[in-house]
Design a binder for these strands. Sequence first.
DNA 1: GACTTTCTCGGACAATTGTCCTAATCACGA
DNA 2: TCGTGATTAGGACAATTGTCCGAGAAAGTC
Lengths: 193, 193
Amino acid sequence: MAATDTRAQIVEAADQLFYERGFEHTSFADIAAQVQISRGNFYYHFRTKDEILDAVIRQRLENTQAMLDDWEAEGAGPAERITSFIQILIVNQSKIMAFGCPVGTLTSELAKLGHPSQAGAAGLFSLFRHWLARQFALMGHEAADADRLALHLLARSQGVATLASALRDPAFVEGEVQEMCSWLAAQTSSCLQ
Amino acid sequence: MAATDTRAQIVEAADQLFYERGFEHTSFADIAAQVQISRGNFYYHFRTKDEILDAVIRQRLENTQAMLDDWEAEGAGPAERITSFIQILIVNQSKIMAFGCPVGTLTSELAKLGHPSQAGAAGLFSLFRHWLARQFALMGHEAADADRLALHLLARSQGVATLASALRDPAFVEGEVQEMCSWLAAQTSSCLQ
DNA sequence: GACTTTCTCGGACAATTGTCCTAATCACGA
DNA sequence: TCGTGATTAGGACAATTGTCCGAGAAAGTC
């Protein structure tokens, strides 16, 4: 097996396990078992657990950016793109009800640990924030307003994710998503005036 | 020192440390150091770490209920009481920006651990949910609607807390709190019609 | 086929974890 | 003052943690 493959597999497994079990509660042994390599083999690819975390965060940043680029490339308008964002709550509903939002829960955990990579994880929020702000700007909102709306929507989806994993009630998630879509429509019409 | 005092001190220290560092990242040694008792002394008061967690959750349930009862006892109307709830985000702003919401972060962590006490921790949400729903009902909303509004407000405050600890931006928190108050006012007037 | 670099294995390491036991200390009534 | 039960201290325990080493297998080059 090529080294790059092994490395990629480690990052992939760590990404998944950090999400499902949390960073601290995931051990080298857990990742090794998932990838089916020996625990000692880690040292060749990653010297410390923090290095794995950094690699995971970097991969998430890349994947998220790619997803946002895809949405941007689609022909639809900014409002439809924002709807794609809101719909993540539906698309990933079962995982979110089990483990919460991957971005929110990781930053929360790292904040409590006082971990140096917390800023990096928070960068995932920035990606969404600026992408959403650009969409709102395209809808006709001025910069400061667009950023405010972006943060507002980000916060609401975070709240839905947190409560979804506590309540495990699909109807709640669907209801809140619908309300967010209505809210989005209101932001649209307020610009057409 | 009386045994009940020691026990209360352990629960108090554990409560604080579970919030600031997370349940898993807090060790017996950490709590013992905080309370200044020997590590071995724990076994007399609590047989397992899970027992401490249960005691912490029980205390939080009692404290929360007491806080809600206090708000209820105050002479103001339901809208003012709901405002008290929203204002927690301001009152506890610095702690929330550092460690997030104690309820949301604990339930998230326990969900990832697959911990049996997750349901107990989620009970904290139920306390707020039903209290808020009662306030909305007093404002004239019918039961199903009141519950929906309660969950909506709960989710929004959760989202603000999560994003607050990631961004650490007081202006964002204050802006969102103001928007929630405006939203609350709209719910009020919609009932007066 | 020989050689060198890249990669992997199994195990060792000190530290820390939650758990548990025993002996000593305390408070307090008889 | 003695004795009894409640409380505490200190340390032992097996298991697990992240980290690291050295021997060897695999892969690629000449």
